[in-house]
């Protein structure tokens, strides 16, 4: 039970923190935040259209909403001349509100409630089980494992592309790379991950999983590769700290993990800034 919860949390945190590194370096963190909110109506619609027990269809349905969000924001920004962050704010609040409304309209048809949307229900993950051969595993695990596999496969195989288009998109476009394509690949990965994470951590806390470990890693590293590896480490450490906090005080596990990553960032930040002060004083 306990280990299944921790395993689920780690499987959510790992791909999130990897993707977070690229979001931070591309200055697209708020877009990730927007997507994580905006997949909500997609999830609800997928719940309604397909059987709620079919997580695969839900994954695809909601993944499309994520790409749609990116597209909407881009159109608002480029075609309608809305400032980019205002466009983000307008689009994600609208889609999230739509999702909440859909949930209340179809409250009888789907087993989603507002609590699940807000914090996720990682505690209940071990309760819904399925059988694969002789193994009995939580229903939430296979999709998460699949998302991990997809995210890590794509990020590792196409690492040079992501690296170049992140570092210098103008140059990348100049040597014939399709920067837009890689952008959309990244955004669809973000939406897959947020959808898979939805059941365990909800739609709003995902952004903490995306950005906080990666931000801590960013403080410590000078290279993309070390940053990615470090953020994985921070992600796992946050899960452990968060789980301990949750056990100790009997509080929400997903929120404690997010808080744990915040604590790790706080420590990194203090060491980082005091280090800088020392260097400055020596000069």
């Amino acid at each position: 039970m306990k280990y299944e919860i921790i395993l689920t949390a780690i499987l959510v945190a790992l791909p999130c923190s990897m993707l977070g590194c690229f979001l931070i370096l591309r200055k697209m963190v708020m877009l990730g935040d927007a997507i994580s909110h905006a997949v909500l109506p997609g999830i609800v619609i997928a719940y309604l259209v397909f059987d709620s027990r079919d997580p695969w269809m839900m994954l695809w349905g909601a993944g499309c909403t994520g790409v749609l969000t990116t597209l909407c924001i881009e159109i608002l920004h480029k075609r309608f001349n809305v400032q980019e962050d205002a466009a983000i704010g307008v689009v994600f609040t609208f889609l999230f509100a739509l999702g909440v409304i859909l949930i209340s309209v179809f409250a009888h048809n789907i087993d989603l409630d507002q609590d699940c949307v807000l914090y996720g229900e990682i505690v209940y993950v071990p309760l819904h089980r399925m059988d694969i051969g002789v193994l009995s595993v939580p229903v939430a695990l296979p999709p998460l494992i699949l998302v991990n596999a997809i995210v890590f496969f794509i990020l590792i195989v196409f690492y040079p592309y992501f690296k170049l288009s992140t570092f210098d998109s103008a140059f990348a476009a100049g040597v014939g790379m399709s920067v837009g394509l890689w952008n959309y690949v990244l955004m669809s990965l973000v939406s897959f991950t947020t959808v898979a994470a939805f059941e365990s951590v909800g739609a709003i806390l995902v952004i903490a999983f995306l950005v906080v470990p990666a931000a801590s890693a960013y403080l410590w590293s000078k290279q993309l590769k070390t940053m990615c590896l470090l953020s994985l480490g921070f992600a796992i450490a946050s899960v452990c700290i968060g789980y301990m906090i949750a056990q100790q005080w009997d509080v929400s596990i997903s929120a404690s993990i997010a808080m744990g990553s915040g604590i790790l960032f706080g420590i990194s930040f203090v060491i980082h800034t005091s280090g800088k002060v020392i260097v400055r004083n020596k000069q």
């Binding site: 931070i24 200055k27 697209m28 963190v29 708020m30 990730g32 935040d33 962050d85 807000l118 914090y119 709003i204 806390l205 952004i207 903490a208 995306l210 950005v211 906080v212 931000a215 960013y218 403080l219 906090i245 509080v251 929400s252 997903s254 929120a255 404690s256 997010a258 808080m259 990553s261 915040g262 960032f265 930040f269 980082h272 800034t273 800088k276």
Partner: peptide, 23 residues
């Protein structure tokens, strides 16, 4: 006091504060 950019700082503070609130 760090090399973090505005969008990262906003998302970071937002999510950690919110998480503390939920806890």
């Amino acid at each position: 006091h760090s090399k973090l950019k505005q969008d990262t700082a906003i998302a970071l503070v937002l999510s950690v504060f919110f998480a503390v609130g939920v806890v």
